[in-house]
Design a protein around this nucleic acid. Structure first.
Lengths: 114, 114
DNA sequence: TTGTCATTTCGTTAAATATAGAAATGATAT
DNA sequence: ATATCATTTCTATATTTAACGAAATGACAA
């Protein structure tokens, strides 16, 4: 239980991962859309997503060519409260607000050309 | 703001530091008392405490020979909510419960002999 | 003022982490 | 079947982190 709590905090202890969670709390996204906002290599974004997934914060599902990520819709209580905390905090942070503007403009059909 | 949130999560992303916060949420303690519970070197405990202090989660004050640590009594909203979250979670974890038993038995006058 | 003692800071080491690029995967579309 | 393409896994590297012991600090007591 302590281990699980540590894992949750560790997952959220990186600026880019906080940004990802705050984005997903507004909208489901695929890897290349997140990559476009964070300006990181695809493999790095994928790694961040796997850390968030392993902590139980997010889930993914296939949709044609793409793998979408969203906030875990059925979290246990530890995760649920961590997500609630994250959702309520830093809502008016400039980076977060800008990220949220960007995700409304991204088009995966244009972005995703490896 | 995002940086501050990251710092708070980083501070809480270590098992020993979570244990420290959960202990301090029951009782103010000095370094050697925490050291006795965690079974770490004094310098290591001191370092953990400084990370928690820098994140705004705890404060310290002098009391004769000792330096006491306690939960920040006047936290800003980010920290206050993080502390509330931490206070409510893993209350029935075995390690946490055992730590709390131990802090009621420690006697700094016996423990602290470098 | 000198010694004692709790704590912090410093220096070092080992382990963990963030990052990127290249190769592997796996599903879709032609 | 084969090519395409988003994503993951692998490999490598640079940075950060946790840990310890030794030395420095700073306050209290003798």
């Amino acid at each position: 239980m302590l281990d699980k709590q540590e894992k949750i905090f560790k997952a959220l202890s990186d600026k880019n991962r906080i940004r990802i969670v705050k984005m997903l709390q507004k909208k489901s996204l695929c890897v290349c859309e997140i990559k476009d906002v964070l300006k990181l290599a695809t493999s790095t974004v994928s790694k961040h997503l796997s850390i968030l997934r392993e902590a139980g914060l997010i889930v993914d599902w296939k949709d044609g060519k793409w793998i979408n990520y969203k906030i875990n819709p059925a979290p246990d209580s530890l995760v649920a409260n961590a997500l609630l905390y994250t959702q309520l905090q830093i809502e008016d942070d400039e980076t977060i607000k800008n990220d949220r503007k960007l995700i409304n403009c991204v088009d995966r059909n244009i972005l995703c050309c490896n």
